[in-house]
Design a binder for these strands. Structure first.
Lengths: 134, 134
DNA sequence: TTAATAATGCAACTCAGTTGCATTTATATT
DNA sequence: AATATAAATGCAACTGAGTTGCATTATTAA
């Protein structure tokens, strides 16, 4: 849980500091849970441009600043931080009541067995259930 | 790996035996791997109606005859058989070269740790890598 | 200050999947 | 076998996430 500032993030990447990027990144850094495009648009003000927002999410993801989560709901969600799915120590929990997506890091080493001749590169796990708030 | 016939499947469900349903189910029962809507349409002949096909896939899924797989490619894939994701002994392997989706059952008991107060209901795992054919 | 480059805003598009509704078909009953 | 009824089909139009092309605008390095 290292505390990294917004400025440090921009310094490490070579992305331009635009108004939207600052707002978007703050939003994602402050958020406790993964955010959908719709949730982000809501928080940033509805006037944000759809393609600009998506392009910036893609750019942040590419830069390893955020990660995208496919929670099987049909819409992607985005969370601050880089995830190495190969290490298998990160999964996502989706509450079926409030639909909140939590990053779960408590899995020391999931051992996944694949058949002979298969080579694993990444493992993505979606856990569905009821969260502690519901 | 019990061998179940198409007729037995129809007898157990109370779905009408229509031409398309018979063709679709045979297709899924014969298929070695999970099939997308596009692949199914290809195999059934392009003249099949989109909504009819989707409705039947949904109906088969609802009846527990097939299962739908979200392999994070953006399109759902369908495979014969019921999957109890809660048992945690079934995952899906996606080959990043040929994009084939394999059902993987070799995981005796994936132990997933969730934080206190969280209740797990299902676990879905997508493994990405290279399959034995590639 | 200015030039170069990257980001933005807009509109139009793609593509998976869904919905409403009129028509047709499977099956149980006579 | 004829028929009634409920369900399945086919069609067209729609939805909603995400993308793309392009002209305009803003950031940053010189």
């Amino acid at each position: 849980m290292e505390q990294i500032s917004l400025d440090q993030v921009f310094q490490k990447s070579n992305m331009k500091r635009t108004k939207l990027r600052i707002a978007l990144l703050s939003c994602l850094m402050d958020a406790k849970h993964a955010q959908s495009y719709i949730a982000l648009r809501e928080r940033l003000g509805k006037e944000v441009d759809k393609s600009t927002l998506y392009r910036n999410l893609a750019a942040f993801e590419e830069a390893g600043i955020i990660h995208r989560i496919n929670d099987h709901s049909g819409v992607s969600k985005y969370a601050f931080g880089k995830v190495d799915h190969h290490e298998g120590n990160h999964a996502h929990f989706v509450c079926e009541q409030c639909e909140t997506v939590y990053c779960v890091t408590q899995n020391p080493n999931l051992e996944i067995n694949v058949p002979n001749g298969f080579k694993t590169k990444s493992v993505k796990t979606i856990i569905t259930g009821i969260c502690s708030d519901c």
